[in-house]
Amino acid sequence: MRTSTRARATSLAAALALLLTACGGDSGGEEAGDGGDSASGTRTVQVGIIPVSDVAILHLGQEQGFFAERGIELEFNLGQGGAALVPAVVTGDYQFGFSGIVSILQAREQGLPVTAIAPTSWSNGEEGQHINALMASDPAIQDAGDLEGKTVALNILNSQVETLARNSVEVAGGNPDNVNFVEMSLPDAVTALGSNQIQSFVCGEPFCTLAQDAGARVVADNWLDLVPEGIGLSGVYFSTTDQIEADPALFADIQAAIYESLDYSAAHPDEWRAQIPEYTEIDPALVERLTMPLFKSDLEPEEYEAAPTKAVEYEILGEVPTVEEFFWEPES
């Protein structure tokens, strides 16, 4: 194999409501690989991403020709969070998307035919090398336990990031039910933290480094709090069983190109970093200081299960399917 006032399911439910309305008639979406073929036989594949460093592997893979050699050209579409990308993938407007694991498992529990096609990135298990962290500027906030009674921004509520934040508060001896979680985009959260509109937010790179440059500090490394002696899978690239069944050969090629991109990025970190300014407005000089997640093309079940299992404890998720049930694999 190669995330309040707690607004339960607000973000995903809203997205699903729009999706179900769209699915009442012709969605206008294309079958996987249809309508995007050029005269040369190249298949144009629409992919939904968010502006975080993890997805640089796709840009690098495209630059290196891993997709082109399989007759694929990726077109990138930006969104705020993985849950918000689900409708576009389900209607077929996008062939696949990027998301935290929990949002896709929630969509499955709502009856949507989504499935993982490849991993995105892992925590690296090293102190000071956070891929998600609670950031704060107030010197009175020394750890996540001090966030009780405070406002903490998440890019998606009722999600994997909320799971991570709640766990860190609990690990530090606080009660996460006493934290006011609000939804806010990562770029807006950096600004809001500086103006004290919020007191903390869960960052992902490059926004961790941007917040630190604005005077914020890491008060909790979310993944080390969750997996103190190991690593955890942070996200997946996902599609739908309908699209996969319509063109399994296309998705086998997409999957193989993603795996090749993961391994190449791990071996060529400077080339991976060079991609980030291409789809963000980050100063290239800042990119050199970003924390690189762990990339690899193999997955152990416990790495996948770490975040979803904790999400079940917080009633953000109902159950955790096995890795074999969740990750699609092409027939041999």
Rank of each mutant, 00 (worst) to 15 (best):
Met1Phe: 13
Arg6Phe: 11
Ala7Gln: 12
Ala17Phe: 09
Ala17Tyr: 10
Asp26Cys: 00
Ala32Val: 01
Ser40Gly: 11
Ser40Val: 02
Gly41Gln: 05
Arg43Tyr: 01
Val45Gln: 07
Gly48Phe: 03
Ile50Asp: 06
Val52Glu: 11
Val55Arg: 03
His59Thr: 02
Gln62Arg: 11
Phe66Glu: 10
Ala68Val: 01
Arg70Ile: 01
Ile72Glu: 09
Leu74Asp: 09
Leu78Phe: 06
Gln80Lys: 07
Pro87Thr: 08
Gly92Ile: 12
Asp93Ala: 15
Tyr94Asp: 01
Tyr94Glu: 09
Gly100Ala: 11
Ile101Lys: 00
Val102Glu: 12
Ala107Phe: 05
Arg108Gly: 09
Glu109Trp: 03
Pro113Lys: 01
Ile117Pro: 00
Ala118Glu: 11
His130Phe: 06
Ile131Leu: 09
Asn132Glu: 15
Pro139His: 10
Gly145Asn: 09
Gly145His: 07
Asp146Asn: 11
Asp146Tyr: 02
Leu147Gln: 14
Lys150Cys: 10
Ala153His: 00
Ala165Arg: 08
Arg166Ala: 07
Ser168Cys: 01
Ser168Leu: 03
Glu170His: 07
Val171Ile: 15
Gly173Val: 04
Gly174Leu: 14
Pro176Thr: 02
Pro176Cys: 05
Pro176Gly: 04
Val179Gln: 07
Met184Ile: 07
Ser185Val: 05
Leu186Glu: 11
Leu186His: 09
Thr191Ala: 08
Leu193Asn: 03
Gly194Trp: 08
Asn196Cys: 04
Ile198Arg: 11
Val202Asn: 13
Phe207Met: 05
Cys208Tyr: 12
Thr209Cys: 01
Thr209Met: 04
Asp213Trp: 03
Ala214Pro: 01
Ala214Ser: 12
Gly215Leu: 08
Gly215Arg: 04
Val218Phe: 02
Val218Asn: 05
Ala220His: 04
Asp221Ala: 04
Asp221Val: 01
Leu224Gln: 14
Leu226Tyr: 11
Ile231Gln: 15
Leu233Asp: 07
Ser234Cys: 09
Val236Asp: 02
Thr240Ser: 11
Gln243Ile: 00
Phe251Lys: 06
Phe251Glu: 09
Ala257Met: 13
Tyr259Asn: 12
Tyr259Glu: 15
Ser261Lys: 13
Asp263Phe: 08
Tyr264Gln: 10
Ala266Gln: 09
His268Lys: 14
Pro277Leu: 12
Glu281Pro: 00
Asp283Glu: 15
Val287Ile: 13
Leu290Trp: 05
Thr291Arg: 06
Met292Ala: 04
Phe295Ile: 05
Leu299Pro: 00
Glu300Met: 12
Glu305Ser: 02
Ala306Met: 08
Ala311Trp: 05
Ala311Pro: 05
Val312Gly: 03
Val312Cys: 12
Tyr314Glu: 10
Glu315Ser: 12
Gly318Trp: 07
Thr322Gln: 07
Glu324Tyr: 03
Glu325Gln: 15
Phe326Leu: 03
Glu331Gly: 04
